[in-house]
Design a protein around this nucleic acid. Structure first.
Lengths: 338, 338
DNA sequence: ATTAGCAGTCGCAAGCATAGAGTGCTAACA
DNA sequence: TGTTAGCACTCTATGCTTGCGACTGCTAAT
């Protein structure tokens, strides 16, 4: 990142701030009035020209004011982040609730709350399930040759699924199978489980069930099975950039394609804040801000918002960095409203 | 519905058909060329004027052709339906799969398939869960003072949820509770279960669990808990009417609000095809076509599509009325593709 | 280094003329 | 009475011109 003079920095921030709220090109005189009454607009103009040359600002046309480029937003965000990280970043964390609610409920609540307080479309990606530890696998006979498999991890119930078992299976058979499976997998992390896991010798009769469970656990591994929750899709219509159908379409095509979202945040799973801005980072005319999220101490994925490139980064980052606290207050409040 | 002359009927259908594919106002001469070369455009004009007076057609402006009104679409659909119902309406039905897949999976698959073959946004509403019969309720101790409740109905696993149980609960306690609960509810339909159900005398120790289960079953009753699945949201961008952001916004506001969708189809649960067209029926500039759907013989809700007012009703109705068959072929095909 | 002043550029809205599409009406016709 | 040809009329869409307003970039003076 370039080294800017103090004044250029202030200027750049002024442009971004102004633009974020007005969504119209910012002129030199506007900045002078609101931010720097002590220098003339001409001075500001020449500084702005410098920032433009460096790629931070763009002119829609020659007689218009300046608009921040994606690069400007990135710079802007950088400075917000550096000040936040000194202050306070909580690990975004939901403890306790996991026990009673299950992962899915927490996720849905969280997404809703984030969308409501930021007023942007929010999303949550479950991943990093890899690192959860299998506490127990339960097999429940449902009759009709089917059984329900429940995987319990240290972060709560991870997944349940129906599997087909052979005809005439008894509860006793399932109990034994469960024992064997728990002996094999209990205490292991999901990422360690693979198709090369095989039955211990002497209990070949449980092969079918065993294999089904292995397949299920494998399917939990990141990618193939990871869920994405989106909330507040219609919030984007509040923002003028989405008066343009192309932008809306673009937006929809991102949030409705799981793989696209994964592509965007893949590889950032260890980063506190992952921030993607603009076409160069895969989100044309948009920004995607996500933060790491944990339930009962286990990193399970990322929460964040997606919206216009000129989104209110300060607010979003603040909300995300305090989510653990905020969510408690917010859900309490909502319970009363409803 | 008005009684139209045979020629007016043909004419009206011609206009709707043309408009459905061109999405541009239809002129008298265009109709003459394509549908009625045996009469002059002047004759057609005077007939069209009649249809306009009856409210079936609208002119965007005086020197434009005609565009069908919502009323015209309703008439059009009526005639399609009457011909279909004579032919073949299968009960939309998924049997067998329920056993192994669970309700949710089937629903998700169905919605996807409908969206893919119609090329419209499709949705499915689970309701009428009321009529399912409780086969069994299972309680599974997960440790940490929590238990998993699984409700098994004649249509498969309906719902599972974690509940909080008192400390120090044993498996035996849960087994006994399950017995009592099954004695109370087994074989009954969900709609019959209410808060006035109380524990039999002499087993007050199970009150907490019992009450939790009642609450859960109550929550399954229509409305409070009914799920809506939507697929293919971005399909609408293929249609020119959604070049207009207001329409998109409108569309989004419908499909992202559960209550709105319910409002629209509430009361139609027994109707084979529920078709809502235009503002007068709650969907401005849109049409919503849904059909009854059953899993293993139990009516569980409705599947359908939502799209522009001038959607391809023939195709949609055909797809929906044959869904049972189609879905089999389609999913087979997809499995190969993927 | 900063500034005032000014020329230059561009977008945007309004005004106007024109071409094209389609209708409604009327009078004649079968 | 239903149908038709012909014509006047209306309205949209497009392109062109013009003037205004909003900025900027440059230059010369401080």
């Amino acid at each position: 990142m370039d080294q800017l003079s103090a004044r250029k920095k202030r200027l750049l921030e002024a442009v971004v701030d102004s633009y974020i709220c007005s969504v119209e090109p910012i002129s030199s005189s506007a900045i002078q009035k609101e931010y720097m009454p002590d220098v003339s607009s001409a001075t500001i103009r020449s500084e702005l020209a410098g920032l433009e040359e460096l790629g931070y600002l763009v002119k829609p046309h020659v007689s218009a004011g300046r608009v921040p480029s994606s690069k400007a937003y990135r710079y802007y965000v950088e400075s917000i982040l550096s000040s936040v990280s000194e202050e306070d970043i909580d690990e975004l964390e939901q403890a306790g609730r996991a026990k009673i609610e299950g992962v899915e409920t927490i996720v849905k609540d969280t997404v809703k709350v984030v969308s409501d307080i930021t007023n942007y479309t929010s999303l949550m990606v479950l991943e990093g399930v890899d690192n959860l530890i299998v506490k127990e696998v339960k097999l429940i006979n449902l009759g009709n040759d089917t059984a329900l498999v429940i995987v319990i991890t240290d972060a709560g119930v991870l997944r349940d699924k129906l599997i087909d078992i052979g005809a005439g299976v008894t509860d006793g058979y399932l109990d034994s199978a469960a024992c064997i499976i728990n002996d094999a997998f209990g205490g292991r992390s999901i990422k360690d489980i693979s198709y090369s896991d095989t039955l211990p010798a002497g209990v070949e009769e449980f092969k079918q069930v065993f294999d089904e469970v292995v397949a299920l656990l494998r399917a939990c591994k990141s990618g193939s099975d990871s869920q994405i929750y989106v909330e507040g899709t219609d919030k984007i219509f509040d923002y003028p950039e989405y008066k343009d159908v192309d932008n809306v379409r673009n937006f929809m095509s991102v949030i409705s394609r799981k793989d696209k979202i994964h592509e965007l945040i893949d590889g950032d799973s260890d980063i506190e804040f992952s921030i993607k801005i603009g076409a160069e980072e895969g989100v044309k005319n948009m920004a995607l801000v996500t933060a790491r999220y944990a339930i009962s101490g286990n990193k399970v994925g990322r929460v964040g918002v997606i919206g216009p490139e000129r989104m209110d980064y300060k607010k979003v980052i603040k909300v995300l960095s305090r989510l653990g606290r905020t969510i408690g207050e917010l859900t309490d409040k909502e319970d009363k409203d409803v």
